[in-house]
Structures are given as C-alpha cells and as structure tokens.
C-alpha cells in the first residue's frame, strides 16, 4: 500500500540525515519491514527506484530486512508467531492478540560516501 508516499517520506529522512552528516551520495539503504506492516515489497522496490531518481540516492541499493510477525496472546499469555494480522493464536485459538513484532517500517541504516 502507498509505497510511493512511503518512499517520499524515506527520501526526506535520507535528505535530512545526509544534510546533517555532510553526505554527498547514498550507496545503499537498509530498511526493516515487518511482515504485518502492510507493505508490498515488490511495489516498495519499484517505488524506491522511481522516487530516488535524480536525488542523492539515485541508483542506491535497497536492502530489506524482513521482521516476522509475533504477538502476545491475551488468552493463553504466550508469545506466538503469526503470519497475518487476524490470525488466531496457534496455541489456544484465541483472537485477542497484541502484536509485539512485525509491524516495523523503519529506516535502519544508510551506506554513504
């Protein structure tokens, strides 16, 4: 969803950090994207190349570290792995899951020159 606007936000973060650190060019961008973040990775890669064109990150490599979904079950109290937001608890079948990992959408690191 909205991968282009995410990349525009990403670009403004990159520009901000680049200005503060005297960076001329960005060679690679490392993102952390959770499995439950609602981001289509292919669309994100496509949008990334388009949005970064003619900027200091033009041609930068995009590295995506995916974070698996994890939730704490309100029923049995266990921390469980989930693949989708509305999956029931695989242990007790409970529906009251609080997501503890997997909705990340973060700029983790930049490789710059």
């Amino acid at each position: 969803m909205h991968e282009v606007s995410l990349c525009r936000g990403l670009l403004s973060l990159i520009e901000e950090h680049a200005a503060a650190q005297g960076v001329a060019r960005v060679k690679s961008v490392v993102l952390e994207v959770g499995a439950l973040a609602g981001v289509e990775l292919e669309a994100l890669r496509f949008a990334f190349d388009v949005v970064m064109k003619d900027t200091l990150a033009d041609g930068a490599a995009l590295e995506i570290n995916t974070v698996p979904g994890q939730a704490q079950c309100g029923g049995c109290g266990q921390t469980v792995a989930i693949e989708r937001r509305f999956d029931p608890c695989p242990l007790c079948g409970g529906q009251l899951l609080d997501i503890v990992a997997g909705d990340e959408l973060r700029l983790y690191e930049l490789e710059v020159v």
């Binding site: 936000g9 990403l10 973060l13 950090h17 650190q21 960076v23 973060r106 700029l107 490789e111 020159v113």
Partner: peptide, 17 residues
C-alpha cells in the same frame, strides 16, 4: 576509491507523519 561509511539511523518511516 571513495570511502563509504555506514550511518545507523533507526527511524520509523512514518515518524514525520
């Protein structure tokens, strides 16, 4: 050859919003 360095940022993409 340009020396590259790595900047740890760790900022949420939606942080501005």
């Amino acid at each position: 050859p340009e020396a590259s360095r790595r900047l740890r940022v760790e900022v949420d993409l939606l942080a501005k919003n």
